[in-house]
């Protein structure tokens, strides 16, 4: 049974490794990937629909003072808020958030 794997071996030698040297080489996400949530504060009317509909309770919106906060640890990146936003001020960006930094402080 060595022969099927011999073929795989030669192919693998030609194609190179299937993995990347992260973090030096970072994979580009596909367009349309739900990476992280961004709010365009200029368009936001602080109505709070997103906070009420969020399945994870990750959003807190107050009208006065006008505040929109996202708890990235609670967010499940489903994009439901983007769908229900009446002013379309919310959008999903394809890049994932960096890992929370810890000692390196890249939070």
């Amino acid at each position: 049974m060595i022969f099927p794997f011999l073929k795989t071996l030669f192919l693998s030698l030609r194609r190179g490794p299937a993995t990347r040297r992260y973090p030096r080489v970072v994979r580009t996400p596909f367009p349309g990937t739900r990476g992280h949530l961004v709010n365009d504060a200029g368009k936001c009317i602080f109505c709070g629909v997103c906070a009420r509909r969020c399945p994870a309770g990750a959003l807190v919106v107050t009208r006065t003072p006008a505040h929109w906060t996202l708890d990235p640890y609670r967010c499940i990146v489903c994009g439901y808020c983007v769908e229900v936003c009446p002013k379309k001020s919310l959008r999903m960006e394809p890049w994932h958030r960096r890992e929370s930094g810890g000692a390196r402080g890249q939070g």
């Binding site: 299937a18 996400p29 596909f30 990937t33 739900r34 990146v77 489903c78 994009g79």
Partner: peptide
């Protein structure tokens, strides 16, 4: 490892079409 390399392609297809690798939503 060979099998999981193939699996990675499926995950890529899921991300390409649904926008996420696992939680398609």
């Amino acid at each position: 490892m060979q099998i999981w390399r193939a699996r990675e392609r499926v995950l890529d297809l899921e991300e390409q079409t649904a926008g996420a690798r696992i939680m398609l939503s």
